[in-house]
């Protein structure tokens, strides 16, 4: 264990050697790091599910008095290597508005992503995680709600007179604007 108590004085040739060592060694180590990092950031390059119209329910299954009902969204799902056909990918609340129009709300709370519950007594939605309160139309019902925006409304189409189709998509939680996850 020969070790100097004091560091030896570096010369100019030594500097070149040191710089060379660091550079060459660094170069060798960069290769596996770079390969690993490229794979690690692969998710940033991937597209999520794009919002397609999905048939959700028939109009008869919707109460006429404007009470919302929850429906599952069933669609094809890609998860890394797996492709699953017609599996539940999310849920929506559907209701008839006062003028008998159909409204669709994503059940995900825009605060931090919990599923909101419909509370018949309060005539609105409540998030079980942080108590955000929303009205039947999805608007914030309580100014103290931590959610930065109302529940996310989704496009609805009535096809063939009775079929309710919803353009289902999720939006980033925690933002005041609706930013689609894609």
């Amino acid at each position: 264990m020969d070790q100097p108590e004091r560091l030896p004085k570096p010369g100019r040739r030594d500097f070149l050697k040191k710089a060379g060592s660091v550079f060459v060694g660094g170069l060798a180590a960069t290769v596996p790091m770079a390969a690993g990092f490229t794979v690690f950031v692969d998710p940033l390059r991937r597209q999520g599910q794009n919002g397609d119209f999905v048939r959700v329910a028939s109009i008869e299954s919707l109460p006429a008095d404007g009470v919302p009902r929850r429906f599952s969204i069933v669609a094809d799902r890609s998860d890394a290597w797996n492709k699953s056909m017609q599996v539940p990918v999310g849920a929506v609340y559907l209701r008839r508005s006062a003028d008998q129009k159909i409204e669709a709300l994503n059940v995900v709370c825009p605060h931090l992503g919990c599923f909101v519950d419909y509370l018949a007594g309060e005539k609105g939605f409540s998030c079980p995680c942080h108590n955000s309160k929303f009205g039947l139309d999805g608007r914030l019902a309580d100014p103290k709600s931590p959610s930065p925006r109302p529940l996310d409304t989704l496009e609805v189409e009535l096809r063939n007179g009775t079929e309710i189709w919803v353009k289902f998509r999720n939006f980033l939680a925690g933002h005041a604007e609706k930013i689609p996850v894609s």
Binding site: K17, G20, S21, V22, V24, G25, L27, A28, A29
Partner: peptide, 9 residues
Amino acid sequence: VLKDAVACL
């Protein structure tokens, strides 16, 4: 170290 680094490369 320099020799080792070159060998590793």
